[in-house]
């Protein structure tokens, strides 16, 4: 009697464990394969950052641009990640262009953050647009990036780029954005 109870308990625990482990794995596999099929053929070109506000220093613009290229490569969502001006982008069969415009920039201070903890945060708000080669807007979002506690001011650009890459990964767009289809939509 005792042994049957134990065996029932073990079976029950094993079943619960199997459900909790296997199900999320299965869904993750389905999700990743789905995103691969929808975006595997797309390449992306990252354009230089439009400062929008004159307050933004060039080092910040360059840092956002460089971090964006790095983060988008890391996600492996796109077949190729091109920089602005890259000749190879014109040969890519399906190309999306990422344009980033800085909307708001709050210059912080690492020393103020270290001394006060609550003030001195560096904040960035950008407007990101994903366009086709012909200029049709596929996706449009406002993304934030900041550094509040530890790290240099430039870390805000890293956080921002990571948020943009995450936003692109979570978003979906129609697979058929062929030039002919776009031309038929536009009068």
């Amino acid at each position: 009697m005792k042994t049957s109870k134990w065996s029932q308990l073990i079976a029950c625990v094993t079943t619960i464990l199997a459900i909790t482990i296997v199900l999320p794995l299965q869904s993750a596999t389905v999700k990743s394969s789905g995103s691969e099929t929808s975006a595997a053929r797309w390449s992306i070109q990252v354009d230089q950052v439009d400062p929008g506000t004159p307050d933004l220093s060039y080092s910040f613009q360059a840092a956002i641009y460089e971090n964006l290229v790095d983060e988008l490569k890391k996600t492996k969502q796109f077949q190729e990640v091109f920089r602005e001006g890259d000749h190879r982008a014109s040969e890519a069969p399906k190309l999306l262009v990422l344009k980033t415009t800085v909307e708001k920039y709050t210059a912080g201070s690492e020393t103020r953050r270290a001394v006060t903890t609550v003030s001195g945060a560096t904040k960035l708000t950008v407007h990101s647009q994903l366009l086709t080669r012909e200029g049709k807007v596929v996706l449009e979002r406002t993304v934030n990036g900041d550094v509040r506690f530890f790290g240099s001011n430039l870390r805000a650009t890293h956080n921002l780029a990571r948020n943009i890459a995450k936003m692109l990964k979570e978003s979906s767009w129609p697979d058929s954005l062929e030039p002919t289809a776009i031309l038929s939509v536009q009068p």
Binding site: Q48, S59, A62, Y65, R83, E84, G85, D86, H87, L154
Partner: peptide
């Protein structure tokens, strides 16, 4: 001092080095 260089690679892609 923060020195930022904007340069072009062999494929024409723009880089920003800090």
């Amino acid at each position: 001092d923060i020195l930022t260089l904007e340069y072009v690679d062999s494929d024409g892609g723009i880089h920003g080095a800090i």
